[in-house]
Design a protein around this nucleic acid. Structure first.
Length: 396
RNA sequence: GCAGGGGUGGUCGAGUGGCUAAUGGCACCGGGCUGUAAACCCGGCAGACUAACGUCUUACGUAGGUUCGAAUCCUACCCCCUGCA
């Protein structure tokens, strides 16, 4: 049955690597290319789950490290898993904690066995290994599980990047083994509980993460090692960590087309609206980024004419919406002047409205991208979007 | 009326002879944010000139005075607060 296939390519663009596809999990169907809002602690900050549904988000992220520390995966499991706990019926992808290996800097110590963290909440000592990460993500009930990796810092020498990617590969194999152990338990359990259940749809899928910094040979090596293990999807990690934008595009351009065409390709942590368009052109299917939500809380909104900071004094008397070309609920109703007023008074509605709009903008952009690919017009769309986005920012 | 305390830059509030164009908070202005230690962080904030080092002007209730030099000391006046009548 088709609905039991995790990923199906629907349309391949002829003038670029762009393609559309459909991901099917136990909780939702996800049209790709897709942008996944980040909900680290079981919440996409400032938004309700109802709002996410209204925005037609089909999948959001959660984070192993954060939920492990608080409230703890056992508690969430006892309450029926993360979907039920946070009342989110659609898909969830959980990051493995690998990014925290990178971002927590001095608070962590990397060993072969795993990573010792100093909790950023209370300073307590914590340990996450590939096995622990899989156990936590399994307890959370994630639809898409990420292998535990080391997000290589930038800059890294060729030698450092090679050592890092090889550690990630060893951890990827351990992640695969531990993940499969749980999957088999689950399958056996299902048979015991309900012998009539013939649903072959798996409950979760494991993605491997390619590292290798900006070195093509290392990226290729990383990919080959992951292919040997075998995953349901492949992520490009270790980008947008401080490298030049051209380096990011170059690395994505090199590695993305080498990933298996019949598996989802996920560029982790990216990015700006331009980044999304550019990466889709290079063959990427999935994205996540804190930018639309974090920047929203800081007053920066994305519009079809580039970004603007709605706190700026020049918007004090503007009756216009954030983006005149946006049809979202916020742009249909609220003015720049009002939203600026909310920011200047530290009113939480400011963050809510801007987060809503920014995600609406991102998700609408992805919708337009998918549509243009389906119509065979992606290259024209790409050129039109970028020129409008880049050239008329001053008009904001 | 008497006694005591006080008037500092948009605001609150330090400073009690030169190191003070004046600490700090707030407000305001601007920038940054890419698998969220982020409703956060950084910068600016008397005016004029300069690419810049910097220079000049005007500023600590008002008006005088002492001094090489005053937001800081003295005198008078104006205003505010507290207590007693």
């Amino acid at each position: 049955m088709n609905e039991n296939i995790f990923f199906q390519i629907q349309q391949q663009d002829h003038t670029s690597q762009a393609r559309t596809g459909l991901i099917t999990t136990a909780h939702s169907q996800i049209e790709t290319p897709v942008f996944m809002p980040v909900g680290t602690r079981g919440t996409v900050k400032a938004l309700t789950q109802e709002m996410l549904e209204t925005l037609d988000a089909r999948i959001i992220l959660g984070n192993t490290y954060h939920l492990f520390l608080r409230p703890g995966h056992e508690l969430i499991a006892a309450l029926g898993g993360l979907h039920k706990f946070m009342a989110w019926p659609r898909s969830l992808l959980t990051d493995s904690g690998g990014f925290q290996v990178f971002s927590l800097g001095a608070l962590r110590k990397i060993k072969e066995e795993g990573v010792e963290f100093r909790s950023h909440l209370d300073g307590s000592k914590q340990f996450i290994s590939p096995e622990v990460s899989m156990q936590v993500q399994h307890a959370l009930g994630s639809d898409i599980v990420m292998a535990f990796d080391e997000c290589t810092p930038y800059p890294a020498t060729h030698d450092e990047a090679k050592k890092s990617l090889e550690l990630t590969s060893r951890w990827a194999r351990r992640s695969r083994v531990e993940f499969d152990r749980f999957s088999q338990q689950l399958a056996v359990g299902h048979l015991a509980d309900d012998a009539t259940q013939t649903n072959s749809l798996r409950n979760s899928f494991l993605f491997g993460i390619i590292q290798g910094s900006v070195y093509h040979d290392l990226r290729q090596q990383s990919l080959e090692q992951l292919l040997e293990i075998g995953f349901e999807g492949y992520a490009i990690g270790g980008l947008s960590v401080g490298e030049e934008k051209a380096m990011m595009y170059d690395t994505a351009e090199f590695i993305a087309p080498l990933l298996p065409a019949d598996k989802p390709r996920y560029l982790m942590g990216v990015g700006t609206p331009e980044d999304l368009v550019e990466a889709v052109a290079r063959g990427v299917d999935m994205f996540d980024c804190v930018m639309p939500t974090r920047n929203a809380r800081n007053g920066q909104v994305f519009t079809s004419r580039g970004k603007l900071n709605v706190r700026n004094a020049k918007y004090a008397k503007e009756a216009r919406p954030l983006d005149e070309d946006c049809a979202c609920a916020v742009c249909r109703r609220y003015s720049r002047a009002y939203i600026r007023h909310l920011y200047l008074n530290d009113e939480m509605l400011a963050s809510i409205l801007c987060s809503y709009h920014n995600l609406a903008f991102y998700l609408d952009l992805m919708q337009q991208i998918r549509q243009s690919i389906a119509l065979g017009e992606f290259t024209a769309f790409r050129a039109g979007f970028l020129s409008k986005y880049k050239s008329v920012e001053a008009a904001n």
